[in-house]
Design a protein around this nucleic acid. Sequence first.
DNA 1: CGAAAAATCATGCTTTTAGAGGATATTATT
DNA 2: AATAATATCCTCTAAAAGCATGATTTTTCG
Lengths: 205, 205
Amino acid sequence: MSVKILIVDDHPLVLEGLKSLLSESEGISVVGTATNAIDAIAFLKSNEVDIAFLDINLPDISGIELCKKVKDQFPEVKTLALSTFSERAYVSRMIQNGASGYLIKSSSKEEILEAIDQVQAGGYFMNVNFDQAAAAPTPKTIPFLTRREKEVLILIAEGLTNPQIADKLFISVTTVNSHRQNLLMKFEVSNTASLIKLAAGLGLI
Amino acid sequence: MSVKILIVDDHPLVLEGLKSLLSESEGISVVGTATNAIDAIAFLKSNEVDIAFLDINLPDISGIELCKKVKDQFPEVKTLALSTFSERAYVSRMIQNGASGYLIKSSSKEEILEAIDQVQAGGYFMNVNFDQAAAAPTPKTIPFLTRREKEVLILIAEGLTNPQIADKLFISVTTVNSHRQNLLMKFEVSNTASLIKLAAGLGLI
DNA sequence: CGAAAAATCATGCTTTTAGAGGATATTATT
DNA sequence: AATAATATCCTCTAAAAGCATGATTTTTCG
């Protein structure tokens, strides 16, 4: 009996590539594909799936949320995160949400097959490519931000100054500054430039 | 006689996906693939190619530079840029460097085939998806940056202050500040936060 | 309910940026 | 050789950000 795979990715090329790669392999069958989260959930409701490949960038909701939903509603389905380099930082979040591993999109066929084996056997697969990871100092974990901190972060990224943000949110400048300081602390950086660069790299803005 | 295609992309999945999609089509043959610029140039030296698909993110040099090299050394080869959403802003540069068009990686099979037809016939193909473009205020053009400005931009993004950058580059703080001001001007922003966000969005840092 | 977390505000101080308005060398490029 | 672009340097001012320390009020959640 072969491993049933569902692929969720909004890039037809990646979808096609994965299908093509996997269909050449024994014991694996791609039973479905989806280009968005809603279709993916719908498919899972009426089909049996062993492993779901989840792209991190989906048009409707993020792969992170989809991963959570899948694990909540279909705990028996194993999930594998698909990411590109720049999104790799998301991955720890996916793991927290129950993913069994992740693959970067530049993975080789062998790595992909190994990941399926590992995950199907109940294990985890992490495909970490450190030559690029070393160059970009990835934060250990994605900082947990509060609602207000996210708001402030977005506005900072949009180029607003503390006084402007204060006006916009109807709070005092010192409060905005507090949030800003907390952001710097949580991201372990010491100025706006680094903050925005990190946040952008994490896809938060 | 079929159209000879070379695909240059460092994502095996995309490579495989494109190959798979194109090989199903009449009159098209994928004669080669490469995962970096050097291999791509080497291939072009010894093989005849009609259209080269160039990924914008390559490990060695950027697709933009590769495009230029290809057009310089092999002017008869037509080039098609491959990008994802976030890199779309690069595209005007590719066009300036002689590309005959661009495809976003979420293009459908039909769009890809149409692009090949158009380009092979000597035309251009632009696959613009405006529902996302409207949301993200893309700058009109990618600012042209000088060597020094790029250096300074990178160091700013790394979180260095003007004095620190001055130390690192063995120039005075006022010079660093000049470059910084020029960066703000060229990107049409008024502070570091916006600058870094834009630059990050354009993949410059 | 009660503790913990989040959001709010304040004061004072230092460093860094942003902005204006120059000036002079050093490289291309024609 | 002349022009244009780039890189370099300067002074001065004002605004904003960064840093420390501390406090009060809401919310959230067990």
